[in-house]
Design a protein around this nucleic acid. Structure first.
Lengths: 334, 334
DNA sequence: TTACACATGTAAAGCGCTTTCGATTGGAGA
DNA sequence: TCTCCAATCGAAAGCGCTTTACATGTGTAA
């Protein structure tokens, strides 16, 4: 391995000067030139471990995925958010470290990140159990889709999303509107359900108890089960607002299996706008989360934290607007 | 930061002994116990940079995504492969480093990985341009879906996949079979096309020139264009084997837009079995790649390389079987 | 009792880099 | 020519850990 010592010798300067030249500190032009020549010639590559050890800065950001579907990186929502995050932090030369979850222990995960010396952490999770929360972190952290008042969390405007959905149903003449909720220990699940009830009230509609069913952790299996509960009702809803696209897709599928028509008999609106949504039949009308933007905002907040920029300025950054994507799963009642 | 020195002092031993105890080297039981107690008490976490510097082993594996769709981690095929890879290397305590691609320069990417001191590299790419190939790597590397004879590459059995597709068409009475190829600079694209021609020959069918069209880099846009070329033919095929699901989905869509029925007028078989495949209408019959297994095999090979295990034993590991997933996009001709 | 072997622990060097602080140099001004 | 200051460079310490080679202490055999 070629080190700074080799460069120093080859260029005729001390290692201190070489280090300065490499870090754009003040050295004479002549020294800089000679050193750079040596770098080229010897194919020198700095050693990041040594640098990290000396500077206490790793230029790595730890990524923690909290999902219990076992699909990890392949998660349709998370992966897009992280990609948005990555694109932004890359601009500032950070790399992403996906740490392994030793035994799934939350404390362990945090310790591991500490061990790795990451400069920051981004946590994105769908389920409710806290991953790292109770630890008092020394490491700047940003959360996505997670309930916390501290600055440093990013999420979609779930209330607005629910309102968009409800209003769209109402505009199309629906009043018997059900909601398949996300698990009520998850932030997104809670907020979307709250938003739903609020929007219904605003429209002067009552939320019937039996029209509120839990779909679990946003999986197709959960959506299917929840929909079956709805289908089994004597007085079925004509419209179902589903807290996640995967669940919505499964709900539509089982509805068709029961011999009902979608959307003529039952209309659906999902949440997320994952890629599949536009390909199912009928194409799913849904509330789009701007995954790129969520990732990017999280990145901005985290970088600010890392650089100790006053986080109070960030308050307005944390909520990301959603939009209604109209497709073919909502029927207009006569 | 609490260091090994603090532990040494607190436990009444030298740092050398502490280090040994922490690394399961030979020390007395008493010493080990006292040291572990101190570790607990002081909440000691070892510093991985220091350790890496001293041992020249980082316990990190660099991940290089070569895709030109700009979706990175969210790539439907890659993400699943990498997840399979991750699951396996995690068992051996490796973490994954997703490096940023400074300016997209291949040399730079490799240099960056070298800088980071990763213990191994996994490269997965769809496009043809070599990413890191021409460099003589010092770092153990494994490729996925890439043409190379050297041990250290994993890919699906593309020929078998093409044969499965062709035979399935033939069994259903089709003879006018077209192929939408993947870009012919990509390994997968080339192999699937070769396999197609071979399988056609085996069936005694001729491959008509105009039934062979290029769909580019596996995107929906490319599939659409290619399909339009086929639809514009006077004598249209009754069956189309498409080298990728995304392309196949777009091809089906445009076919329907042209007023034809799928699969009654034209049948389709895709390749990959990405998640969307089962949700489109009609559900896409396709050649499934075992993404988990590809990732896992790549991991096994890479770990062997890292541990300098004779790679000649690995030859049989590198090709992963595929399977035909029958759904609804193939019509039986009378 | 003496000699020796083995188990256990430690001092110190080294991994590759940054950074502080003092030494050296050259040039400007008198 | 001499002084002084600014610019430039380098010696050395330190980041936290591993590892080698050696020192110490204990038990065993003669």
């Amino acid at each position: 391995m070629v080190t700074i010592y080799d460069i120093a010798e080859h260029a005729g300067y001390s290692i201190a000067t070489v280090s300065k030249a490499l870090n754009n500190k003040k050295v004479s032009e002549k020294a800089r030139r000679k050193i750079m020549e040596a770098v080229e010639e010897l194919h020198y590559t700095p050693n990041s471990s040594a640098r990290t050890l000396a500077t206490n800065k790793s230029w790595m950001i730890g990524v923690v995925f909290g999902e219990n579907l076992g699909i990890g990186i392949a998660h349709p929502f998370f992966s897009q958010v992280i990609e948005g995050f990555k694109k932004h932090v890359e601009l500032y030369n950070y790399d992403l470290l996906f740490v392994s979850r030793h035994m799934g222990l939350q404390q362990e995960t945090y310790k591991h990140l500490l061990h790795r010396g990451v400069d920051g952490i981004v946590i994105i999770q769908s389920h409710g159990e806290d991953e790292i929360s109770q630890v008092d972190h020394m490491i700047p952290t940003v959360y996505i889709d997670r309930p916390t008042d501290e600055p440093g969390t990013v999420y979609s405007d779930n209330h607005a999303g629910s309102r968009l959905a409800v209003n769209h149903f109402v505009e199309n003449g629906h009043t018997k509107i059900a909601h398949i909720r996300g698990n009520q220990t998850t932030f997104a699940g809670i907020e979307r359900a709250k938003g739903f009830e609020k929007a219904m009230k605003e429209q002067g509609l009552t939320v019937r108890d039996e029209y509120l069913v839990d779909g679990g952790f946003y999986s197709q299996a959960g959506g299917r089960e929840a929909m079956i509960r709805l289908l089994s009702l004597k007085d079925r809803p004509t419209a179902v607002y589903v807290a996640g696209d995967e669940m919505a897709i499964a709900a539509m599928k089982v509805t068709k299996e029961w011999g009902l028509r979608v959307p003529e008999d039952i209309s659906f609106i999902g949440f997320d706008d994952i890629k599949i949504a536009q390909h199912v039949d009928p194409a799913l009308t849904t509330i789009r989360q701007d995954k790129e933007l969520i990732g990017q905002k999280a990145a901005i907040i985290l970088l600010d934290k890392i650089n100790s920029i006053d986080p109070t300025q960030e308050v307005d950054k944390k909520m990301v607007p959603v939009s209604l994507i109209k497709r073919d799963s909502v029927h207009r009642l006569a």
